[in-house]
């Protein structure tokens, strides 16, 4: 394996980009990712925070305590991962993290690995998805991604500008990817439009250092409120309605009630903010 430093975004061809390494290194070690060449992109990804524009290389620890950052995003960062991981992990890396589904992590030949079965649907799925879970039942683990969807953030990549929601796609028979990022494309900046109030609420198995069972991000601008959820679908889920059309699996129906309760609490918090 070779590791080199990037000096421009055009030299990523065929190389695996690594920033904080908190996702890439464990995946390499677990054999879930293979790479001949790793390219350290820290020199070419902006890191500063300037009002609405956040460098994609900012760490979660930096976002967690910066008053320029909307409250929901600060809270999502504060409740994510562990202090060490927040010191290391970048904003864009967090958006691109892979699922925590143990069948995927244990390299079972599931649909995300190109196979023809979602083992979680018949197996252990207490932590898995309750909507859009018919093809792959993984739950998206990123508190930050759901929050940026609620905040209607925009990504500036090395090749295009897109709403953060369009970074994600539900996997299908023909295309098992869960993001729309092209090979060699780098997320460089995240633009977060101002809002009047925002909140992030997270249900987890322990109070710290846990992935979301359900995370609810809500942002209000004037009369309009956007709500997005983590942990309920294979991608960050923009809420439309009340989750009455959820399709929970036998072992995770509790999540519907949990999500609905957190949505109610988030709305109440926004109303009094």
């Amino acid at each position: 394996m070779e590791l080199r430093q990037a000096s421009s975004a055009t030299e990523l061809d065929g190389a695996t980009p690594v920033h904080g390494g908190t996702e890439v290194v464990p995946l390499l070690r677990a054999g879930l990712l293979s790479a001949d060449t790793l390219i350290d992109i820290r020199p070419i990804v902006p890191r500063g925070i300037s009002r609405e524009r956040i460098g994609a290389g900012a760490t979660l620890a930096e976002l967690e305590c910066d008053p320029q950052v909307p409250a929901a995003l600060r809270e999502a960062c504060r409740l994510a991962a562990s202090p060490q991981l927040r010191n290391m992990g970048s904003l864009a890396g967090n958006l691109l993290q892979a699922t925590r589904c143990w069948y995927w992590r244990l390299n079972w030949p599931c649909r995300l690995h190109g196979g023809d079965e979602c083992f979680a649907q018949e197996g252990e799925h207490r932590e898995h998805a309750i909507v859009a879970n018919d093809f792959c039942a993984s739950g998206h683990p990123s508190d930050v991604a759901a929050t940026l969807v609620a905040l209607d953030a925009v990504l500036h990549t090395s090749t295009r500008t897109l709403p953060v929601a369009e970074l994600y796609r539900l996997p299908t028979e023909d295309n098992r990817a869960t993001t729309t990022l092209e090979p060699g494309e780098l997320i460089l900046e995240v633009e977060v439009p101002p809002c009047d109030a925002s909140v992030y609420l997270k249900a987890m198995d322990r109070k710290r250092w846990a992935f979301p069972l359900v995370g609810v991000a809500a942002a209000r601008s004037g009369d309009s409120t956007r709500i997005a959820l983590a942990g309920v679908a294979p991608v960050p889920w923009l809420l439309d309605g009340e989750l009455d059309d959820a399709t929970p699996l036998p072992g995770n129906a509790y999540k519907v009630e949990l999500a609905q309760a957190l949505v109610r609490r988030a709305k109440t918090a926004l109303a009094s903010a």
Binding site: L3, V18, G21, T22, V25, A61, Q84, L85, N87, M88
Partner: peptide
Amino acid sequence: GSPTLACITLAHS
């Protein structure tokens, strides 16, 4: 000065 996980930090980085 920042707490960092040495087990997932690449030495050359």
